[in-house]
Design a protein around this nucleic acid. Sequence first.
RNA 1: GCCCGGGUGGCGGAAUUGGUAGACGCAGCGGACUUAAAAUCCGCCGGCCAUAGCGGCCAUGCCGGUUCGAUCCCGGCCUCGGGCACCA
Length: 867
Amino acid sequence: MESRYQPADIEPQVQNYWRDNRCFEVTEDPDKEKFYCLCMFPYPSGALHMGHVRNYTIGDVIARYQRMQGKNVLQPIGWDAFGLPAENAAMKNKVPPANWTRQNIEHMRGQFERLGMGYDWSREFATCDPSYYRWEQWFFTRLMKKGLVYKKNAVVNWDPVDQTVLANEQVIDGRGWRSGALVERREIPQWFMKITAYVEELLTGLDTLDGWPDSVRTMQRNWIGRSVGLELAFPIENSNEELVVYTTRPDTLFGVTYMAVAAEHPLAREAAQGNPELQAFLDECRQVSSSEAALETMEKKGMPIGVNARHPITGDAIPVMAANFVLMDYGTGAIMAVPGHDERDWEFATKYTLPIRQVIEPEDDGEHDISRGAIVARGRLVNSGDFSGMQFDEAFDAIADWFESRGKGKRRVNYRLRDWGVSRQRYWGAPIPVINAADGETLPVPEGDLPVVLPEDVNFDGSGSPIKSMPEFIETKDPRDGAPATRETDTFDTFFESSWYYARFACPDADDAMLDERARYWLPVDQYVGGIEHAILHLLYARFFHRLMRDEGLVDGDEPMTNLLTQGMVNAQTYFRQQTGADGEEAGVSWYNASELELKRNERGQVTGAVLTEDGQPVEIGGVEKMSKSKRNGVDPQEMIDRYGADTVRLFAMSDVSPDQGLEWTDEGIEGSFRFHKKLWRAVHAHVERGAPPALAVDALNDGQLTLRRKLHATIAKATDDIGRRKTFNTAIAAVRELMNDIAAFKDTSPEGHAVLQEAWTAIIAMLSPVVPHMAHVLWEALGCEGAVIDAPWPVVDESALVSASELYVVQVNGKLRAKLSVPAGIGRDELEATAMADENVQRFTDGKQVRKVIVVPGKLVNIVVG
RNA sequence: GCCCGGGUGGCGGAAUUGGUAGACGCAGCGGACUUAAAAUCCGCCGGCCAUAGCGGCCAUGCCGGUUCGAUCCCGGCCUCGGGCACCA
C-alpha cells in the first residue's frame, strides 16, 4: 500500500477493474430481489456541469448501497437527445443538430466513466436513435386507433418577423428573442393526447405514492385542479345566442356585474365588425405570450363590446367586455365576473368603473368595506333574492337545483388539467407518424413503414424546420390506395421521449416490440432521482404514459416510480461590478469568477469585501445563485476531477447538505473533502502497518474498547438509516467522521484494541464505499478483506454492542434545562424523580415553590413544573 | 398573479417532525513541529453577564397564538428559490 493518497493513480485502475469484470451489467434473476435505480437522463448539452455531478452521484450512492444489501441492482443511463439547444447550436456553429448531439454524448459518456458511475453501459441509448423513437411512433399510431389522440387548433407564439413559432423561453418581455418583434398569438392545428381521459386515476394515484415527497404530490394535485362547480348559461339580449360559463362560486351569482369574453370569442369578433376601435383592441389582445405567468402578471385590459347578457335569475342586463386575460382555448372562452368577491374581478371593475355588489357577508363579523377590496371568504348570502340568508353549501345546492330543474345549467366536475399538446414545429425531434391524404384524412403510418426516420444530413439555417421544405421527406403515398399524399412535418414534444425511456431500459435491444417480458421484471423504478423542476410536467406525463402502456398490455402496475428523490440545485457565490459608460449612464453589469478575486476578511474570519486581483479595485458581493455561464459563478467538474480526483468531488457533492436542498459550492469545501481523503488514507495506512490483528474476542474487551465498539455500532445503525431510509447522505458522512474522531482519540495499542480497530476500519470503508468507491476499493484490499468492496455486504449492527449500563437524562424546570443526569439504565420513575429533585442546580429553581407536576420522557427527559 | 418549498453562529448545515439548539465540516484565533513555509497535530470558537469554580440571561427571518415544553404545530407578514403547460 502506498503511504500517500494519489487519486490520479488509483481511480483509473479501479475503473478498469469494474469495466473488465463487467461489474454493473445485470440480467433478470428471479431468485434475487431486484432494485431499479434511475436518475433522470441528461440532455447532452456538451459537458457535465455540477448539477449533473450531484444528481448522478446521488443515484450511484443509492445503487451501490442497495447492491451491498444483496439486491440485483439495475442502474442504466441514456440520453435525452432531442431538443431546442441542438438547433440553436446548429445555427451558431453551422453543424447539423445530429452531429453536435452525438459529439456531446461521446464527451459526456467519458466524463461519467471518469466519475466512477456504476452504469450498465450495455443498455445505453439516445432518444434520437431511430431504434428508440420508432416505438413511440408505433405507440402513437396505436393510440390514434384507440381514439386517445386527436387534432385541434391551438395557440402558439408567432414571431411575425422571423416567421417562426417560438417556445415560451424564446419570448422575452413579449418579444421574440432574436427579432425583437412583438409576439402574436396564432392558432394552428396540432396533435393532442387525451391525458384528461385519465385525470381521475392520475389524481387518486397520488394517494398511493407514499415514496414521493408530499410537496410533489401536492403540486400535482393542484395542477390537476379538480373542482366541483356549476355550468350555466347567460342569454344574450336580442339574440338566440348565450354565454356558457363555469363557476365554483354559484353562491356569488347575484353579484355578477359584467361578463368577460376572449378576444377570439365569436361574440367579440362579430361585434368588432364595423367597430374599428374594438377591432384594434382585439388585435392588441393577440400580442401576448401564451404563457400563463405572462398572462397573469400583465396589465388586465378590457373593452365593452356593446352587447348585453341577461342575468339568468334576475333578468338584469349585464354588459359584456372583451378582455385580454380570458383565453378562448381554456374552458368556454367566457367568464362571469363577481367583483365583490374576486380580487381580479375587483381590480378590473375598479379600473373600468364597473359596479361592485356585495352578496356575501363573511363569518368573522370583521370590518369589510367592499369599496376597498373584494371579500373572498365564504359566508352568508345577502342581496340574493330567495337565496339570501343561506350559507355556502346550502346556497350552492339551492342555486344548482334551481338551474338543473329548469334545464338551464348543471353541476359539473371541472379540471384545470388540459390535454397534452405534443406537436412541435421543430426539426430536431421524432417525426409524428401521420400521413395527410388528398381527401383530407389524417392516417397513421402503417406499422411496416415505421420508423419515419428524421433526415439527419440537413442544412440548418434557422429559417424553420428543414424537413418542412424537403420534398423527399414530405412526399409519400396514401397507405389505402397508393395515391400521392404528404407527411406530417411536425415532431413530438421531447417530453414524449422522456415519458417512457425508464421502461425501455429494461429491454433496450427489443427489436420486435416496444417492451418485452423483461419490463415486467424490472419495473416499476424503485428509486427515481432528479431535479425538483420536473415535479409536475415530466413526472405527470410519465405517470400518464405508464397507464397508457399498461392498457396496451405492455407493463404491470399503475405507477412507474415507487420512490422519488427530488434534488436541489448547485449554487455558488456571485461577484459583480456595475459598469458605467463614458456618458455616466449605467452600462450593465460585469460578473466575475471567484478565481479572479481575493477576499478580505476581518479578525473573525467574516468576509468583508472582495477585490479583483487584476486591478486591486473592489467588486460587489452578490447573491448565492444557481451556477450559470451568464453569472460566471460556475465550476467545471472536469477541472475539479483532474485536480482532486472523482472521489473528492463525489464526497463534497454528498457531504454538505441533504440531496433535496440547494448545495452551495465553495473552494474551501472541496479542499476539506480532499483533506478528509488524505486523513483517512493515512489512518488506514498506519493501521495496516501494524500487521494482521488478532480475532475479535468481545468478552475480553475493557471499558474503553467497549465504548469505541458501542460508537461503531451506533454509527452503523445511523448510517444505515440515513442512507437506506432518509437519504440524508450528509448526516451519514458526518456520523462516520465523528467515529473517526473517536478513533483518533483512542490511544489503545493492545491486541484487543487492534482487533476493535480492524472491525471499525472495515465497517467505515464499507459504509463510505458507495460515496467514494475508488478509494474504498483500494483500502478494502489493504485491510485484507475478501473480494471487492462493491460485492461486500453492508455492515450489520451488533445489538449487543449497543447496550450501556447508564442513561443520560436531561432535567428541566418549567421547560428550561437545569441539569444533566447519568443514571443506571432502567431506573424506576420514583427514583429518577428523586434523583432529579435532589440535584443542586435543580433545587435552586424549585426551592420554596410548589411542584405542580413532573413530566418524564423515558430514556430522555424530566421536566419539573413548579408554580 | 397562482401553486410548492426554504430562512438556525463569521459560513454550509445538524437537531429523525413537540423534549439538551448549534452534531459534522469550513473559516478564524492560539499553540506544537519546522531555519522558514506548506503539510500535519493539539486547544478555543453564537451574543451578553458572571467567573477560582458552579452558572445565569438572550438567541432558530418578523409579529402573535397553542403547550409543562416550539427550529418543529396554528394565524398573519417579510424574504429567497422552483414551477406555471413550446427550456429540459
